[in-house]
Simulated scan of single mutants.
Amino acid sequence: MSAARSTPSLFLPGLRDVYAAYAREAERLPALPGALQAEVAVSERLGALEAAAPHKAGRRAALGDLITSLRAAGTPGARVFLLALAAIGPVEGRSAAAKAAASLPGVAVPDWAADLGRVTPGTVWLIQEGPLDGDRLVCEFRYPDGADLHALAVRLGYGDKPAEVVVVGDVPALMNAARQAMQAELCVVQPYPAAEVGRRLRAALDPDGTFPDEAYGALAVARQRAAALPER
């Protein structure tokens, strides 16, 4: 059963309809097959919020309002969104999102919600296609018990500026295509130190940086995965 609905006080009341739309869209989250799909969906919505924010203060205010609005909605989808936000969302909002989700103990969520954000890094690959294409860093991850292999793939251009940020669900297909390209002498594929990749990605994905429009949707997942890579 959902918690009683209320009209929360917001920092940016002019965006109330936007937050309401997020809460409605969240209702599809419990029907998704697993944690990865939910994280990707929530990351896309958080990316849209970040891309639209005019500055850091506006971004923080919108994030706080979204958490407040999801808590007020009190639905299963809203609680899943809050749990995902607590796991992979902006660091400054994770504690508030976790508390908001915990305040809805009677709202049922899928079993896979317990795995949100609980990933272990695997092999890291460097793919170089040419001096003008930059470095593509592919970092493999799995959920508990080795489930749901997936990867974060980030192409870094000149000055390690992100040119492409995507979450890859079919890692074998990606790496098979890369190896075929390597055999055709179109690129170089080699393992790369995870700590070095983590350092580069954490710097490249800093929230104060600039990103291609199409990258915003993957940033929340990408930052959480980059933080999971070893520091040394």
Rank of each mutant, 00 (worst) to 15 (best):
M1G: 09
A4E: 09
S9R: 15
L12F: 10
P13V: 05
P13A: 05
R16H: 11
D17I: 15
A20N: 08
A21L: 14
A26W: 00
L29E: 05
A31P: 01
L32G: 04
L32P: 00
P33D: 06
G34Q: 06
L36W: 04
L36R: 06
A38S: 06
E39V: 11
A41F: 04
A41S: 09
V42L: 04
V42Q: 03
E44L: 14
E44H: 14
R45S: 10
G47E: 00
A51I: 08
P54W: 10
A57P: 01
A57W: 08
L63A: 11
L63F: 10
L63D: 01
G64R: 09
D65Q: 13
L66G: 01
G74P: 01
G74I: 07
G74A: 06
T75V: 04
P76F: 13
P76H: 13
G77E: 00
G77P: 00
A78R: 06
V80T: 10
L82G: 00
L83S: 04
L83Y: 03
A86S: 10
G89I: 05
P90D: 09
V91S: 14
V91M: 14
V91N: 07
V91P: 01
G93N: 03
R94L: 05
R94F: 02
A98P: 02
A100G: 00
A102N: 08
A102Q: 11
S103Y: 00
A108Y: 06
G117Y: 04
V119L: 09
V119E: 05
T120K: 14
T120D: 06
P121K: 13
P121G: 11
T123S: 04
W125K: 08
I127R: 15
Q128F: 15
P131C: 12
L132I: 13
G134R: 04
L137R: 05
L137I: 05
C139T: 08
P144A: 08
D145R: 15
D145T: 14
L149Q: 01
H150N: 03
H150G: 03
L152S: 01
L156E: 02
G157P: 00
K161I: 10
P162W: 12
V166C: 02
V166F: 03
V168K: 11
G169Y: 13
D170R: 15
P172H: 07
P172M: 08
A173H: 08
L174E: 01
N176K: 15
N176L: 15
A177G: 10
A177Y: 03
A178P: 00
Q183M: 14
E185A: 14
E185F: 09
L186N: 10
L186W: 11
C187L: 13
V188R: 15
V188G: 06
V189T: 04
Q190N: 03
A195C: 04
V197I: 06
R199K: 13
R199F: 07
R200F: 00
L201Q: 02
D206V: 12
P212Q: 08
P212K: 15
D213N: 11
E214K: 15
G217L: 07
A218F: 05
L219T: 02
A220G: 02
A220I: 04
A222P: 00
Q224W: 10
R225Y: 11
A228T: 07
A228G: 05
L229Q: 07
E231G: 13
R232V: 07
R232Y: 07
R232A: 14
